[in-house]
Amino acid sequence: VKAQEYNRVPSSDNAQYSECIKYINAEYEGGSLMSPYRGQTKAAAWCTCAWNETPEDFKGNLGKYAETKKGKALMKTCDQYANWGV
């Protein structure tokens, strides 16, 4: 089921977003496949979700955070959002 689309990551957070794209593409296969959202690959959708789902002041690695005990719900939410491995 397609969820409401998340806000785009602002250019001020491009470094964090780019780091997430690299990380998630190394961890998952198929990141360049299209997500349910126009113009977004699965990796882009996943990282957009992760950026939106973390606290506003979060400055760490989004992909690594998703692997922590606290971040497991984020991983599940973003996997579903990007239609990846669900």
Results as ranks from 00 to 15, higher is better:
6 Y>I: 01
6 Y>D: 00
6 Y>K: 01
6 Y>A: 05
6 Y>M: 05
6 Y>V: 00
7 N>C: 12
8 R>W: 03
8 R>V: 04
8 R>K: 05
8 R>H: 02
8 R>D: 03
9 V>F: 01
9 V>N: 06
9 V>W: 00
9 V>Y: 01
9 V>A: 06
10 P>I: 09
10 P>M: 11
11 S>K: 03
11 S>Q: 06
11 S>D: 05
11 S>F: 08
12 S>L: 09
12 S>R: 12
12 S>W: 08
13 D>I: 04
13 D>C: 12
13 D>S: 13
13 D>N: 09
13 D>F: 13
13 D>M: 11
13 D>L: 11
13 D>R: 04
14 N>C: 13
15 A>W: 15
15 A>S: 14
15 A>L: 15
15 A>K: 10
15 A>Y: 15
16 Q>K: 11
16 Q>N: 13
16 Q>V: 04
16 Q>F: 15
16 Q>P: 00
16 Q>M: 15
17 Y>F: 15
18 S>D: 14
18 S>V: 11
18 S>L: 12
19 E>A: 15
19 E>K: 14
19 E>T: 09
19 E>W: 15
19 E>N: 13
19 E>D: 14
19 E>R: 15
19 E>G: 12
19 E>L: 14
20 C>E: 09
20 C>L: 13
20 C>W: 08
20 C>H: 12
21 I>T: 12
21 I>H: 07
21 I>V: 14
21 I>N: 10
21 I>W: 01
22 K>S: 13
23 Y>C: 09
23 Y>D: 07
23 Y>T: 06
23 Y>A: 08
23 Y>G: 01
24 I>P: 00
24 I>F: 03
25 N>P: 06
26 A>P: 11
26 A>M: 14
26 A>Y: 13
26 A>I: 10
26 A>D: 12
26 A>V: 12
27 E>D: 13
27 E>R: 06
28 Y>W: 13
28 Y>T: 06
28 Y>S: 04
28 Y>E: 07
28 Y>N: 01
28 Y>C: 06
29 E>N: 07
29 E>F: 11
29 E>R: 02
29 E>M: 07
29 E>W: 08
30 G>D: 03
30 G>E: 03
31 G>I: 06
31 G>H: 01
32 S>D: 08
32 S>M: 11
32 S>V: 08
32 S>K: 02
33 L>T: 02
33 L>S: 00
33 L>Q: 01
33 L>D: 05
34 M>T: 05
34 M>G: 01
34 M>L: 02
34 M>A: 05
34 M>V: 05
34 M>D: 03
35 S>V: 02
35 S>Q: 03
35 S>R: 02
35 S>C: 07
35 S>W: 08
35 S>K: 03
36 P>M: 08
36 P>A: 08
36 P>H: 05
36 P>Y: 10
37 Y>F: 12
37 Y>V: 11
38 R>V: 15
38 R>G: 12
38 R>H: 13
